[in-house]
Amino acid sequence: MRTVRPSRDGTAVAPVLVLTQITSLQVGSAVAKGAYDHVSPTALAGMRLTFSAMIMWVLVRPRLRQITARQWRAVISLGIVFAAMNMAYFQAISHLQIGVAATLELLGPLMLSIVLSHRLEHLAAALLALTGVLLLTTSGASLSPLGILLGVLAALCRAGYVVLNQQVGRLFPDWSGLAVALAVGACILAPVAAVTDAGAIAEHPAVLETGLGVALLSSLIPYSLDMAVLRRIDTRAFGVLLALSPAVGAGVGFAVLHEHLAVRQACAIALVVLASAWSVSRSPHTAPIPSPAPTSADDDQPIKDTEHQAQA
């Protein structure tokens, strides 16, 4: 199997892309939570995926006839995870503070990083970040059991998202896979949102603008950046870099929602930032990224533009 090795610059830019992704996602979550007085989390999750799918489809214009059976399996799986992850997380932040919900969701990628660790320093960085994440959740106040359950569900979906997003990014030479996966997720979640909250949307049509903004900030920009990052670094390094999420979420919560940090939370943020910086410094400058494997005889014909596979 032919491999493509990213350059030093490609690996070095990954933390910047991850930080941009995290910031966009957390700001979008704050905007969404601010609209919960007028519309339900389910409706906002549905609008988030639907608007994202529509925009991405117009920009990319994927050619469905050129998608192979193997690619279809990957994008459908990712689309299902998109729907479940959006629903779980948006419901979680209705019961928990954004910083706490982001922390719980982060447990999925962090556990994935620990499982995939093959070197002692990688394992130590992931465990240090996990310690910080767990410390951040213990703010001293009682947490909603339902919110915690939803946060754990979002964490499981987030771990599956990391794996599947990387797979889709490697199977498609462009952004067609992401566009189709978003459309699959929207087809699953939009009908549920329409049935449960159509009246509220009709009563407050301005929430459609909010839904569009949330789609851009929380889905389209972060998911696109994730796919770009996962073409440069492995899932282990990506999972540890995501440990910055609670810190950014806490900052956004303070700036937008006036949520104050306790000393314990500040210490926890310092731990996850330290773990992320350590992970980046100990990561190799190059990591092999396999190109899409040839399809079997049972699959459809592979896409014609494989020779133009995006190189990080």
Results as ranks from 00 to 15, higher is better:
residue 90 F to I: 12
residue 107 L to Y: 01
residue 136 L to A: 15
residue 135 L to V: 11
residue 120 L to C: 13
residue 106 L to G: 10
residue 122 H to V: 06
residue 103 T to D: 07
residue 110 L to P: 03
residue 104 L to Y: 01
residue 132 G to N: 06
residue 81 V to D: 00
residue 123 L to W: 07
residue 146 L to Y: 01
residue 121 E to R: 09
residue 91 Q to W: 04
residue 146 L to R: 06
residue 104 L to Q: 02
residue 136 L to H: 09
residue 148 I to V: 09
residue 87 M to Q: 07
residue 129 A to N: 01
residue 95 H to C: 14
residue 81 V to E: 05
residue 87 M to K: 02
residue 101 A to V: 12
residue 102 A to P: 05
residue 80 I to P: 06
residue 108 G to Q: 11
residue 134 L to E: 02
residue 81 V to Y: 03
residue 118 H to L: 12
residue 141 A to E: 13
residue 102 A to M: 15
residue 132 G to R: 02
residue 121 E to M: 09
residue 104 L to S: 08
residue 86 N to V: 01
residue 128 L to V: 14
residue 124 A to H: 02
residue 88 A to K: 00
residue 122 H to L: 12
residue 123 L to M: 08
residue 127 L to Y: 05
residue 120 L to W: 14
residue 129 A to E: 01
residue 107 L to Q: 02
residue 119 R to E: 14
residue 118 H to N: 09
residue 141 A to S: 12
residue 89 Y to A: 06
residue 123 L to H: 01
residue 117 S to L: 09
residue 78 L to I: 03
residue 97 Q to W: 13
residue 96 L to A: 01
residue 128 L to F: 11
residue 130 L to D: 11
residue 94 S to A: 15
residue 141 A to N: 09
residue 112 L to G: 00
residue 83 A to R: 03
residue 125 A to H: 08
residue 131 T to M: 15
residue 80 I to V: 14
residue 140 G to S: 11
residue 113 S to H: 06
residue 92 A to E: 09
residue 95 H to A: 13
residue 108 G to N: 06
residue 104 L to D: 07
residue 136 L to I: 14
residue 138 T to F: 08
residue 79 G to A: 06
residue 99 G to F: 15
residue 132 G to P: 10
residue 109 P to I: 05
residue 93 I to R: 04
residue 95 H to V: 14
residue 138 T to G: 07
residue 143 L to S: 10
residue 140 G to P: 10
residue 103 T to S: 08
residue 123 L to E: 10
residue 102 A to I: 13
residue 99 G to M: 14
residue 110 L to M: 15
residue 146 L to V: 11
residue 144 S to T: 13
residue 78 L to H: 00
residue 128 L to M: 14
residue 109 P to T: 04
residue 113 S to W: 04
residue 79 G to E: 14
